[in-house]
């Protein structure tokens, strides 16, 4: 028979005053200490880095890379003796952007384009999420509509511009429509993929805990689907922003104000290569800024909270 209680010799010799006056028998206390020891051995305190160092570690590599690109660009222009109508120097492009900014045309164009993109994207979020919910949860709809929505992913948003011009004329509705057709499939399919990838154990736990269909969706399935949904939302932004530019480059005039896309087109007509490249960089910068400033932090927080490391293991 194993001993029912711990023999006195096994208790560490401590001064009486330090022995806790716990109502628990020594065996239970022993067990607690054993378990606490195991827990300490089997877990590691998460490494905490200062926010400054973390920000630096995130921001530095891309900045260095961009600087290298610009240096290579400048070197190419100088070494290969390229004329400005083949490849203007970085300084010339920056000058073109600066001039456009100072004249007020660029800020107005950026405001117009970003405003349109946000309106269209907000609508795409609402429609895409609703569609995604239907596709994920209603089997007949999934079977019938799913393949068509997947097919829409393949269709470039530009393809909608001629049709939208005929339907809506040269108005903001045209741009909104194109953005919607670009953004909705990504968002909906992201949500569907997220729901499909919910581990079956979690659904089973929901059932065992007595969750009905509604609580199962709200408490288990959708939180579990969040990473996939956020990936779709992020991709949806990329498609929305592309849609805005596609519409602006092709459709000009009417009640359509001058967006960045129109500016790009105007520079082309003026054979101003520095202006064209400048506009491209502005478009790129806005797309990246929205992604980095608004979407990436949310995504990162969600993934970190689940012990997933965004951007590979750290």
């Amino acid at each position: 028979m194993p001993p029912e209680t711990v023999p006195p010799a096994a208790v560490p010799a401590e001064p009486l005053s330090r022995v806790p006056l716990s109502p628990e028998p020594p065996l239970v206390d022993d067990h607690r200490r054993l378990e606490a020891g195991l827990d300490r051995l089997q877990t590691r305190a998460p490494a905490r880095r200062s926010p400054l160092r973390r920000a630096l570690a995130t921001a530095l590599p891309p900045v260095v890379f961009v600087v290298l690109l610009v240096v290579a660009w400048q070197a190419a222009v100088v070494l290969l003796d390229l004329s400005p109508d083949v490849l203007p120097s970085p300084a010339a492009v920056a000058g073109a952007v600066g001039a456009a900014w100072a004249s007020g045309t660029l800020p107005a164009a950026v405001a117009t384009s970003v405003g349109r993109a946000f309106v269209g994207y907000a609508l795409a979020l609402v429609v895409g999420t609703a569609l995604g919910l239907l596709l994920a949860e209603v089997r007949p709809i999934r079977r019938a509509v799913g393949p068509v929505v997947s097919g829409l992913m393949v269709l470039p948003s530009v393809a909608w511009v001629p049709a939208a011009t005929l339907w809506f004329g040269l108005s903001d509705a045209l741009v909104t429509f194109v953005v919607l057709m670009g953004g909705v499939p990504s968002i909906a399919l992201g949500l569907v993929a997220g729901v499909d990838q919910v581990p079956p154990q979690l659904r089973r736990v929901g059932r065992v805990l007595g969750a009905g269909r509604f609580r199962q969706s709200v408490d288990i399935v959708f939180p579990a689907a969040l990473p996939g949904y956020l990936a779709g939302i992020s991709q949806g932004w990329a498609f929305s922003w592309r849609g805005v530019l596609a519409a602006e480059i092709i459709a000009v005039g009417g009640s359509l104000g001058t967006g960045v896309g129109a500016l790009l087109q105007q520079s082309r007509e003026a054979t101003d290569l520095a202006g064209v490249l400048g506009a491209i960089l502005v478009i790129l910068a806005i797309g990246i800024a929205v992604e980095l400033a608004l979407l990436a932090p949310v995504q990162r927080r969600v993934l970190r909270g689940r012990g997933l490391a965004p951007g590979g293991a750290s």
Binding site: P199, Q201, L202, R204, V205, L209, G210, A211, R215, D219, I220, P223, A224, L226, V302, G305, R306, G307
Partner: peptide, 18 residues
Amino acid sequence: ALLPWLSARRNVELALKL
């Protein structure tokens, strides 16, 4: 099969909530 987005306490609370 703990819900990975909830703390240990919130995981237990979910059972109580349901």
